[in-house]
């Protein structure tokens, strides 16, 4: 009777140890994911812009990068129609999203006005004022770090 009871029980106890290891490995994986995301870099390539910003210029951006006309913005575009801080790129899950920061003139993704944050795909065109930036995602081409 006791054999019947204890035999399966010892596998349950051993399973607890391996479940612990599984949880630990999951936590390690999350750490790696976080480090990778914190290091993730995308690029914005200038397609059209006001004088002072040559087409083809590349901005490397991390999550939280702000595009605007002046200083606190990480990507500064000399565009009279752009706000000081116009739009923002954020990493959500595995991809970058674009978000308008309440600009008067608005931000446009592939010609459509942004009403809410939208996910970005490689090659998408973001327009603010007269400036058009092409988004290059970190998933395409080489790995960024």
């Amino acid at each position: 009777m006791s054999e019947l009871f204890f035999q399966p029980l010892r596998y349950v106890v051993l399973a607890a140890l391996f479940l612990f290891l599984y949880r630990v490995v999951r936590a390690l994986d999350e750490d790696l994911g976080r480090a990778e995301r914190e290091g993730a870099v995308a690029a914005l390539v200038v397609e059209e812009a006001a004088p002072g910003l040559p087409p083809g210029h590349v901005f490397l951006v991390r999550s939280g990068a702000v595009v605007g006309r002046s200083a606190p913005s990480t990507v500064v575009v000399p565009d009279p129609q752009a706000e000081d801080q116009h739009l923002r790129l954020v990493l959500r899950g595995t991809g970058f999203w674009v978000e308008d920061l309440g600009s008067k003139a608005g931000s446009f993704l592939n010609g459509r006005r942004l009403e809410a944050p939208a996910p970005l795909a490689d090659g998408d065109r973001i327009r603010l004022g007269a400036t058009v930036l092409r988004f290059v995602s970190p998933a395409c081409g080489e790995t960024w770090s």
């Binding site: 029980l9 010892r10 106890v13 051993l14 607890a16 140890l17 479940l19 612990f20």
Partner: peptide
């Protein structure tokens, strides 16, 4: 995590005890 450690440790000690 600590719950699983306790489940293994005390489970093993309890089985030995039995």
């Amino acid at each position: 995590l600590y719950g699983l450690v306790l489940a293994f440790g005390m489970g093993a000690v309890g089985l030995v005890h039995a």
